[in-house]
Amino acid sequence: MRGVKRSAAESEAFVLVIEAGQTERHYWKDLWRYRELFYFLAWRDILVRYKQTAIGIAWAVLRPLLTMVVFTVIFGRLAGLPSEGGAPYPIMVFAAMLPWQFFANALGESSASLVGNANLISKVYFPRLIVPASSVMTSFVDFMISGVLLGVLMLWYGFAPGWQLLTLPIFVGIAFAAAIGFGLWLTALNVKYRDFRYVVPFIVQFGLYVSPVGFSSSIVPQKWRLIYSLNPMVGVIDGFRWAVIGGDAQIYWPGFFLSLGVVGVGLLWGVYYFRKTERTFADLI
């Protein structure tokens, strides 16, 4: 009897209409209702990742470290490029490695996430946005590990950051927005065109060279800088460097805001495109 009463009371409040070609009105409310699923999926991915591979954490440490060494040797020593704001070259590189690896890993993880969770998509309803969004969280754990590494590196070089470090969370937020925005877009494309998964590693590899990871974006000629900032990661990386290195490090504000704009557009577009194609996922997967 208890069940009957409850259902009568709740059914007045809850009416769901499923109609063809209409995006659901409850979507954002549902997203909130399923926030725990988001948490559980992220928790699962992290747990499995660090449970399965004993070298899971070692991998998260080694990858940015080795890349940093290679970039420091090639760009700092061999090419003799200048650092930024008096910071040691390795710190400058590492401050860029943080957001870049976060972005690159997040793209990879999220674009594969829906296909990897195909059994869920075809058997249970929940806002699909949760899957790629939660997979970004795994990359965020790696990001945190790298963050600790950066701290160690700064201690090693006896490098003290300035007050700008306090603004770092803002740039982390922007990095998140960039990762989720482009991640969603790639995720949707990956479901629709399965061979898209071959494109993602290429984008990531290509992006590493066109983004100022191994070098300071100040070496880009002034007249090209605004155009260079169309790459959304330029703004994110410059912001990170500015926050971490502090001191004399300069940020090219017009370029930063342009990058920020691109990130914003990317996020809106990513969500829009994802929402548009979301309803067909179960049929395609």
């Binding site: 259902s7 709740e10 059914s11 809850f14 009416v15 769901l16 209409v17 499923i18 109609e19 063809a20 070609g21 998509i121 075809s122 058997k123 249970v124 309803y125 309803r279 067909t280 179960a282 049929d283």
Partner: peptide
């Protein structure tokens, strides 16, 4: 159970479902 969308027509559910 809202896993896939209909091509046409309409369903009204007056209660929470689990599938």
């Amino acid at each position: 159970s809202r896993i896939t969308a209909p091509t046409s027509g309409r369903v009204t559910l007056k209660g929470r479902g689990a599938s």
